[in-house]
Simulated assay, not measured.
Amino acid sequence: MKYDLSQRLVVGIASSALFDLTESDAVFREQGEPAYRAYQEEHREDALDKGVAFPFVRRLLSLNDLATHPGDPLVEVIILSRNDPDTGLRVMRSVEAYNLPITRAIFRPGRSSHRFMPALNMSLFLSANAQDVREAVAAGLPAGHVLASASADDPEDPELRIAFDFDGVLADDSSERVFQADGIDGFRAHEVLNAATPHDPGPLRDFLAGINRIQRREEDEHRERPDYLPRVRVSLVTARNAPAHERAVRSLKKWGLRVDDAFFLGGIDKSAVIATLQPHMFFDDQVGHLGGTASSAPSVHVPFGVANAGA
């Protein structure tokens, strides 16, 4: 029987986001590909250090303990690597060393694998390679550039916290275009006028939908076992404030989606909020916001829409 991905939350992860490849990349840049291959061969049994996205991926995969059958997981994570299969062995050995239940991978030396995302039902691709991410987003695919960020991972903390900006991330960039053309007053007037009209989806709307499915499964588990405490918490952290907040709330409701917390900051710097919230991943479409948040939490740039035009 074929393995069906259609009902699962599928995330693609580059080895550059899952593991710290600083040392390996330095060998490649300074000594060339043959030396890099020899280095990976020599260190094949040495587990790579954890990367920025490791805590997020580990917690995401841990939710498979909610599956009704071990062979029917809720979450699937697939490695998408620019390594060739031989040098990629170290990546898979590292996966095994950390007991991550990742068994599927694509190795394409020197090439991005984002065009295979629809075939694999992926609702998110994470990579530390900015060019790969930009190409994926330009092709209409949901991807994020994992920035060099703080990445604390408390093994005693089972909660998975995910934070999203709204415009250009969960929603499209139509309102951002109004803001850039007409300023803050024009933006607010436009949002009030269109408060009852839901936004078109942005690149990560379907990823949030997949997270919400898992949250509903957690609610079922809590009803069956009152001692079970839900582990997934989703926050909206946006520069919107009243009255523009209403359209964001209504859009989520119209899409059948939800967040647990909402921070409508009205231009207040997001850094202090993210430092307090401590998400395991924060997604924003503007690098200017992420420069401050990266010092306290894993931060991901979604290079979508007008805010990233010409960047």
Rank of each mutant, 00 (worst) to 15 (best):
A97G: 11
A150N: 02
V146P: 02
A163Q: 07
L120Q: 08
R161N: 12
I106N: 01
V146S: 01
D153N: 07
S151Y: 02
D86L: 14
E156D: 15
P109H: 11
G88N: 03
D154A: 10
G110K: 07
E96C: 04
D154H: 11
A128E: 08
S123D: 14
V133M: 03
P70E: 14
F164W: 06
A143M: 09
S174L: 04
S174F: 02
V77W: 08
I162M: 06
F107S: 03
A163C: 05
V75M: 13
G168Q: 02
D172A: 01
E156R: 15
V133Q: 07
V146H: 02
P155Q: 09
I102V: 12
A119W: 02
S151I: 02
V137K: 09
S123M: 07
S149Y: 10
P70F: 11
L170W: 00
D167M: 01
L89R: 15
A67G: 13
D172P: 00
A128F: 07
R177E: 13
A97L: 02
P70Q: 05
P118I: 06
V178I: 12
N83D: 11
S113T: 10
R134T: 12
L160V: 12
Y98I: 05
H145C: 05
F166A: 07
V91L: 03
F107V: 06
L100E: 04
S151M: 04
A152Q: 11
L160S: 12
F164R: 04
L89D: 12
R90C: 00
T68I: 15
T103H: 12
M117F: 09
A152Y: 05
T68V: 12
